[in-house]
């Protein structure tokens, strides 16, 4: 296995790709939103159970590459049981990280830091977060 491959698909990312968390349609979702990547035709739908106080559940489903899928899986865990304001901050910090910022530690989400070296694929990592932001719009 080449080092280059392990750089772009580090262990955490591969583990989430192979065993994605919360990959399902959410029965009784309070909101949902779709995001599409025009480059490859990928799409993801993010489902929320949330109110103005708390995002209690996040699930997703779609046509996704390993990077989008791992990003969505990590996202679904990172933003659960947070206030909508906290979700918005994490979402903003994640995007800043993907666009080059090194000032914030994001826990498991840091596994996606390696993707920054592959400019074309940064969009893959951001795709589920776009859907999340849209789904959250009704909360704020």
């Amino acid at each position: 296995m080449s080092d280059r491959l392990n750089d772009i698909y580090p262990e955490t990312l591969r583990e989430h790709y192979e065993n994605p968390r919360n990959y399902r349609v959410l029965e009784g979702a309070t909101s949902e939103a779709l995001a599409m990547n025009p480059v490859c035709g990928d799409e993801v739908k993010v489902y929320l159970k949330a109110n103005k106080e708390k995002v209690s559940e996040v699930t997703f489903q779609g046509h996704l590459c390993a990077i989008s899928l791992a990003s969505a899986s990590l996202m679904s865990e990172a933003v659960r049981d947070r206030t909508p304001q906290e979700v918005a901050i994490t979402s903003r910090d994640f995007e800043a990280m993907m666009r080059g910022s090194d000032s914030i530690a994001l826990g498991d989400l840091d596994a996606l830091r390696s993707i920054r070296a592959y400019r074309v694929r940064i969009r893959c990592a951001l795709l589920p977060w776009e859907a999340l932001r849209k789904a959250c719009q009704v909360l704020v």
Binding site: L5, D42, C65
Partner: peptide
């Protein structure tokens, strides 16, 4: 395995291919 992941893995082996809808979405 998603086409973009195939293309990334091929690239790591020095093989350049294209992945995506190749500007032909109705065909896909």
């Amino acid at each position: 395995v998603h086409p973009h992941d195939v293309a990334t893995i091929l690239d790591s082996e020095g093989v350049a291919v294209r992945a995506g809808h190749h500007c032909a979405q109705p065909l896909h």
